[in-house]
Design a protein around this nucleic acid. Structure first.
Ligand code: SF4
Ligand code: SF4
Lengths: 152, 152
DNA sequence: CAGTATACGACCGTTTCTGTCGGCTTTACA
DNA sequence: TGTAAAGCCGACAGAAACGGTCGTATACTG
């Protein structure tokens, strides 16, 4: 429950690693996987997903690899999670096609939807750059709370 | 990923239902289950867990059932989730005994731990009462953000 | 005692997650 | 031009988590 998948976890690690090595034009999936001990083939698939979602740019062939598509400050944790695990919902009522069949009688879906938005807001306010810095990312999230409040 | 289990979901619904009917001394698991269409036996087990965790008081026998152990305002969504799904962690590194084996090399666990605390704070600031009222619970969560910030 | 309700544990089918494999395409460079 | 290094893609299998059921024991009411 309320747990990040390891894929998302790995994705964040990889992006952070890329953010920390801007001098290198392209890092291969294997490079990153070796750096942390992540299963190489799995990470490869994750990076491909991130590429499809426009968060990374890829370059095939020798000396190829991946690079951030935007500045690390412009990539939020929310985008990464969304790209890897799909739409972000804390409840099951919205699971695309077949949701929770007791949605009509349910009286807490609306309150929970707002909680969902709040958490999404927290995630959106955290960038890859924040992860790379030693600063506490949660702090930034809270600084942004005021902004989030307005969007409710 | 980052999804409430249905058990927790059901638990919140049940507590909200109890909060809405303070005039009735005890509601049986079946009463609540029928009201929403939740599998009765499953809900029974959930309510038992909540009782063991001290959120509910139970009474066996005829006209028995469950009642809130405290005021609805004093029970947070966080407690409910914790009681049902166990410790709240968005990462896998702390999964009790055997966590993620690459914990030592991982460089994002600390930032994520702070994100974890932030989300937990949001959940803690939402009470059953908030769910029962028509008010937007997320609003309250954000009002409490300042407090959460201090606890980081 | 009979009936109603909680308490508890075992169990099982389904889904989701994690990781692997094999084959294909693109590119650099010798 | 050929080969090696990389990305791209789909299928698949083992493992774990989830959702739900059943049976039985226990507690309380009247
Ligand atoms: S409808 Fe209610 S019960 Fe069903 S998933 Fe959404 S919140 Fe949970
Ligand atoms: S250690 Fe790093 S990779 Fe492993 S679970 Fe914790 S955050 Fe994710």
């Amino acid at each position: 429950m309320l747990k990040l998948t390891k894929k998302a976890d790995y994705g964040l690690m990889a992006l952070k690693y890329l953010a920390e090595h801007p001098e290198i034009i392209a890092l291969s999936a294997k490079d990153v996987a070796d750096a942390y001990g992540i299963p190489a083939q799995l990470l490869a698939k994750i990076l491909q997903q991130l590429t499809k979602s426009g968060l990374l740019k890829s370059h095939a062939g020798m000396n190829g690899g991946y690079a951030l598509a935007r500045d690390a400050r412009q990539i939020s944790a929310f985008e990464v999670i969304h790209a890897i695990d799909g739409p972000f919902f804390i409840t099951s009522c919205t699971k695309g096609t077949k949701g929770c069949e007791l949605t009509p009688s349910c009286t807490i879906k609306e309150p929970l939807a707002r909680v969902n938005e709040t958490i999404a807001g927290v995630l959106k306010s955290i960038s890859i750059q924040d992860l790379a810095e030693h600063e506490q990312p949660a702090k930034k999230a809270l600084e942004a709370s005021g902004l989030v409040a307005l969007t409710l």
